[in-house]
Design a protein around this nucleic acid. Structure first.
Ligand SMILES: Nc1ccn([C@H]2C[C@H](O)[C@@H](COP(=O)(O)OP(=O)(O)OP(=O)(O)O)O2)c(=O)n1
Ligand SMILES: [Mg+2]
Ligand SMILES: [Mg+2]
Length: 833
DNA sequence: ATCCTCCCCTAC
DNA sequence: TAAGGTAGGGGAGGAT
């Protein structure tokens, strides 16, 4: 969903039928400008059933226009935003005569034709689905078919991806506004003045400081409203079973947004560092002339936007400044739910870890369970927190004002934040879309700024460019910098000097330490630890015994203000995943599998963007807990669940959604969970390896879909290697009976020099030997990967039967996995608030 | 010891 | 109504 998260103006026919001729023409002209053959980002081809068919949906239909768009894309058809020459069919459920007469000779067909054709896997005679029986019954000409099939293509609007190139253009075209809003930190007032003076003198910042945020406030909000409105027709109970669900869900998920933005900015830092030009215009503008040899050493800056989503939202709502404000999907009204929440809450409490203090604010059957993504500091004074339910927050703060999301705005501001910092240094560790660590040793040395001067400078630039306040913290390590930011907020700066660390830490409640969350806090509390001082007076050994070796040491270190982890500028992704724990309500097994198929495509697309292939495939399910109510308190939420995961290791890395899906399907069936009780599903890919860049020979070899081999035929020529490939073939599913007796042969896809060896610090490499000897091949596989799990459906039985008895036995043995399934309490979701 | 799988936890 | 994702650190316990 990356990049395409905002829908463009949609094809929805608003049901305002043409009263007069000019309307259609006007509408058409308008649409003409933005004409596209529509395919949907998240929809990937599943079949070619509808090849050659190009539809235009007129008026309200069921499935909806949006859903038909996806179905067309999934099955090789074309969806037209409006009727054009190549439109082969018009889909409508009902049309007034006046409209029909304008549509020409193209048959008007009921939507059931599409649905039934897909269901039966072939194009049915549409004459049985004509909306009006007096229509012509001839099929559209073949010419039409060809044309539309040819035209069928691409053209998906995306919001601009974050790329280093973007940062080369002059994004900013207005003077920096130096005034800062009143600060909580006295010390920074001085630096403010010094700072603006210096910048004015240097005047260099102007070159890179343009475009105030005011002129660039995104129009995203109006769009996001229209997304909601567009779907209001059938949004009443849209679940994951609907074809358009996945796209819509991700389009509205804030957590998905911040997760993907975070990954994008990490990648951006990678990219910028790779193509490092050595040019830092911001830094140059404030660099002192005289050479300063005094090295400052490394000082870590942590910078974080203040109540990020709220600040972005307030740029266009100045009248709400100073008031308690929250960003949420809910409008603040009462929940329309008529579900009795008591039982779910009881179970929720039951499952709380021992020692947890349970405040039950959700008991009210009508309070909104929409989560608050971000709340203003005024709201925080009442006890409102990010992640809290709106209903609960309203009880703490009755005049809390709700404002809508502005996803595009967040992305813009984040981009400016990263662009701005990157004009001074690339020693950046991206944490999230609103937050990063920066080594400012070099900056301080070049500019002779004090920490406070630098903080004032960078904060004023960011404020001027984005219209949003941020805070910065400084310290000798990341922990100290981060804690300093906490103290600086909101709209402030603080340097936790080394000599103050000891005192500062001893008063610190353990809950403040990063990495100490709800569960750890309870455990600490039960052990009698409240503050870092308590820990200091304990011992490393005790902590390690209680929390494990690493975790114990981490708590110990942090309580002393110690953080041994250096900033990590370059980052390498270790996994790619996609999950949905909302709206999962399958009515039958097939719906579940269809959704898993879509999710496979989704996760494959994400993998593709990383340029990696994956060996590990994991399925994660959230299953309604025993005795948990079927209807969750939160509308379409997951409720109280058990979660379980199971994984397989592929013999060879893949980037093929069909391979992924086949594995997932195998695992899913093995887990034997009733589809009715599924409340969440996720697919995770691990063991990532660099995708091999194929040469043209390999490509052309691979692209021949017709390269098939009769299974029954003697394969003695090149026998061994072919068998190897076939045995672990990625493209054959034994469950699919339609596969005749042929299989495709692919060249070896084993990555050249497999990815990094796992984990082992001492460099003990596990290298797969590639052997010509079949038995050796299997042996080495087994040796390299003890306990490799592999679903049986990976093996082509036809091929298996060709093998000598002993080898066949060996394979069967190796692939025979079956662990009793385990259930474990899923507690994560409860930790919100 | 070190790996693996299946969790749990945390952060944004 | 509501949009409860995602990546990484790490522990327990079993296999080697
Ligand atoms: N449970 C959460 C936490 C955060 N966010 C989003 C909204 C936040 O604005 C953004 C940044 O998270 P921060 O932790 O930085 O929180 P804020 O920026 O909102 O506030 P602060 O001033 O404390 O940084 O991430 C979210 O959607 N849900
Ligand atoms: Mg923030
Ligand atoms: Mg943050």
């Amino acid at each position: 969903m990356r990049g395409g998260r905002r829908k463009r103006n949609d094809d929805d026919d608003e049901n305002g039928f043409a009263q007069w001729g000019g309307y259609m023409e006007a509408k058409k002209a308008k649409l003409m400008e933005q004409y596209r053959e529509q395919t949907v980002k998240s929809a990937e081809k599943v079949s070619d059933v509808l090849k050659g068919i190009a539809i235009f949906v007129n008026g309200y239909t069921k499935p909806s226009s949006e859903e038909l768009k996806i179905l067309m894309a999934e099955h090789g058809g074309v969806f037209h935003t409006y009727q054009v020459a190549s439109t082969t069919h018009i889909i409508a459920s009902m049309l007034p005569n006046v409209k029909i007469s304008k549509l020409g000779n193209v048959p008007i067909v009921k939507p059931g034709w599409i649905v039934d054709s897909i269901t039966l896997g072939r194009v049915l005679d549409y004459s049985n689905y004509l909306l009006y029986s007096n229509q012509s019954r001839t099929q559209p000409k073949l010419k039409h078919y060809m044309k539309s099939a040819d035209v069928q293509s691409k053209n998906i609007t995306k919001s601009r991806p974050i790329s280093p190139d973007l940062f080369e253009s002059n994004e900013f075209d207005e003077e920096v506004e130096f005034k800062l809003s009143e600060s909580t930190e006295d010390e920074m007032k001085i630096s403010k003045i010094i700072d603006s003076k210096r910048v004015l003198e240097n005047n260099g910042i102007n070159a890179l400081t343009k475009t105030a945020y005011e002129g660039k406030i995104s129009i995203d909000e109006s769009k996001s409203k229209s997304v909601l409105e567009n779907n209001s027709i059938n949004a009443s109970t849209k679940t994951a079973s609907d074809p358009s669900f996945l796209a819509e869900f991700y389009n509205n998920s804030r957590l998905h947004l911040i997760a993907t933005l975070g990954a994008e900015f990490k990648q951006l830092v990678n990219d910028m560092r790779e193509k490092n030009t050595g040019k830092y215009p911001g830094l140059e503008a404030i660099t002192k002339r005289e050479v300063n040899n005094k090295s400052v050493g490394s000082i870590v800056m942590h910078i974080d936007m203040d109540c990020f989503f709220v600040s972005v939202g307030l740029r266009s709502r100045p009248e709400l400044r100073g008031l308690p404000v929250a960003v949420t999907h809910s409008k603040g009204g009462p929940s329309r739910s008529n579900v009795d929440r008591r039982r779910e809450i009881e179970m929720y409490v039951e499952r709380l870890p021992e020692g947890a203090d349970c405040r039950l604010e959700a008991i009210d059957n009508n309070s909104s369970l929409s989560e608050i993504a971000s709340c203003s500091y005024e709201a925080r004074k009442c006890g409102v927190k990010n992640g809290m339910f709106m209903g609960a927050a309203l009880k703490l703060c009755p005049n809390l004002k709700a404002i809508p999301y502005d996803f595009e705005g967040y992305k813009q501001v984040s981009s400016i934040l990263y662009k701005t910092i990157s004009e001074y240094t690339l020693d950046i560790e991206a944490v999230s879309c609103d937050e990063m660590y920066v080594d400012i040793g070099n900056i301080l040395q070049k500019t002779s700024f004090t920490v406070q001067e630098w903080a004032g400078h960078i904060r004023s630039v960011i404020k001027a460019r984005t219209g949003c306040p941020c805070s910065t913290g400084f310290g000798a390590n990341r922990l100290q910098a981060r804690l300093a930011t906490k103290r600086a907020k909101p709209d402030g700066q603080y340097y936790l000097k080394p000599e103050l660390v000891e005192d500062y830490m001893s008063e610190m409640p353990l809950s403040e330490l990063p990495g100490v969350g709800r569960a750890t806090l309870i455990k600490l509390k039960n052990l009698g630890f409240e503050t870092c001082k308590d820990i200091q007076e304990s011992s490393l050994t005790v902590l390690q015994k209680e929390f494990g070796s690493k975790s114990g040491e981490s708590i110990w270190d942090q309580s002393h203000g110690v953080d041994k982890k250096a900033l990590c500028y370059e980052h390498e992704r270790k996994s790619v995943s996609a999950e949905v724990n909302y709206g999962i309500r399958f009515k039958n097994e097939e719906e579940a599998l269809t959704f898993l198929q879509r999710l496979s495509v989704e996760v494959k697309n994400r993998l593709l963007e990383t340029g990696m292939k994956a060996r590990g495939v994991t399925l994660k399910l959230m299953v309604r807990a025993e005795n948990a109510p079927t209807e969750t308190a939160k509308y379409l939420g997951h409720g109280v669940c058990d979660s379980l995961t199971r994984s397989v290791m592929l013999p060879t890395a893949t980037e093929d959604s069909q391979v992924i899906y086949r594995e997932i399907k195998g695992i899913y069936e093995k887990l034997k969970q009733p589809y009715q009780d599924l409340r969440g599903v996720g697919i995770q890919l691990t063991r990532l390896e660099k995708a091999v860049v194929m040469n043209s020979f390999m490509k052309s070899f691979l692209s021949k879909p017709s390269t098939k081999v009769e299974t029954k035929k003697d394969v003695s020529f090149q026998q061994k290697s072919i068998i190897k490939e076939k045995t672990f073939k990625e493209d054959t599913t034994i469950n699919e009976e339609n596969k005749e007796n042929t299989i495709e042969v692919k060249p070896p896809m084993r990555a050249s020099g497999r990815g990094r060896p796992r984990g082992s610090k001492n460099g003990t490499k596990l290298v797969r030997k590639s052997s010509n000897e079949l038995s050796n091949y299997f042996k080495s596989t087994q040796k390299d990967r003890p306990k490799v799990k592999q679903s049986k459906c990976d093996i082509d039985l036809n091929v298996l039967n060709e093998l000598p008895e002993d080898i066949r036995k060996e394979i069967i043995k190796e692939y025979n996995l079956d662990k009793g399934k385990k259930l474990c309490k899923s507690t994560n979701w409860k930790r919100k608030r």
